[in-house]
Amino acid sequence: MMFSCILQAEKLGKLTYPDLFLSFQLIERFFVSLKEVFIVHGAWTIFWREMVKYKRRMMTLFVTIVQPVLWILLFGVALGSTIPEKEGSISYVNFLIPGIIGLSILFSSLFASFNVLLDKEFGLTKEILMSPTSRNQAMVGYSLSGLAKSLIQAFAVLLLGVFLIVSGSEKLVLFGEGEGFFDTFIWFLTFVLIIVIFSFGFLFMAMAIAARMTSHGALQALTTMLTLPLFFASEALYPSREFPFWLAIIAKINPLTYCVRVLQISLLGYDFRYGDNPPFHYEFADIVTGFIMVGLFTLIMFYLAIKSFQKIKLF
């Protein structure tokens, strides 16, 4: 059954459809891909390989953890020092933790494209795609390893943030503070789930880009060009309510905005404020919207990534 799935997926992959978004085959292919991804262990083989290398290169691990740490230390502490503490407010560093987590995931996910480009360059995609491992599995394998790296980063930021706040003997707000073990657990799950979906979204985007790119320089430029506006036109560093109209539009369609919002709610609760800024107030609906928007983005990127991987030329 497994094998027939692969065959079917490969067969479908070779057809071209003029009207893809509405076609029945697209939906079918989507489900075949999903099935294949969750049943077959080809993806896990690629995941295994990436992790072997990740562990070996402690430097990479170090850099991925240090980068967000620097953001919090330099940006959070520096800007935080200009924001006066107020009764009932959390510190700016505390407010910044969800934003920096979102930022690290965005960066680390998009940079996963370089692994694929390197494999294309050294011919390893040939080795992989000549084996019974299908293109879809290969794509998901790369993405899974990227996800692992994203999660490591997210928790590194979280730990550091907690350490900073506690060592500064400030009041710490985390995971719906003070609502009991069960609530904390649910908020924790929400936190992990939005990270997983959001990270996959940008990992798939990275896969779609890497599959079509041949030059390191161009990939680097494109990645930087994407991350900057995504990052600044979001709520990661500051609230978006004072944004001018055009910037607010970008923020509205920016998946990072929605991811950070869910992260903020899960970490800081529905109501919070930092400094003398007006308080934030969110509701359960904001969580639902957040998941829907990030989920939609991820689905579209999943489709694009699969389509791009079908087009990788092997020689």
């Binding site: 262990h41 080809g42 083989t45 295994w48 390989r49 072997v52 290398k53 070996r56 290169r57 050294f122 011919g123 390893l124 040939k126 080795e127 992989i128 000549m130 084996s131 019974p132 491992t133």
Partner: peptide
């Protein structure tokens, strides 16, 4: 089995890991 014209090896993996990876790919 195929040995391509250009060397196709992951420069960061060991000899054992390269073999292991290939074997895993072929289940």
């Amino acid at each position: 089995g195929i040995v391509f014209q250009e060397t196709i090896l992951d420069r960061e993996m060991t000899v054992w890991e390269s073999m292991e990876f290939h074997g895993k790919l072929y289940k």
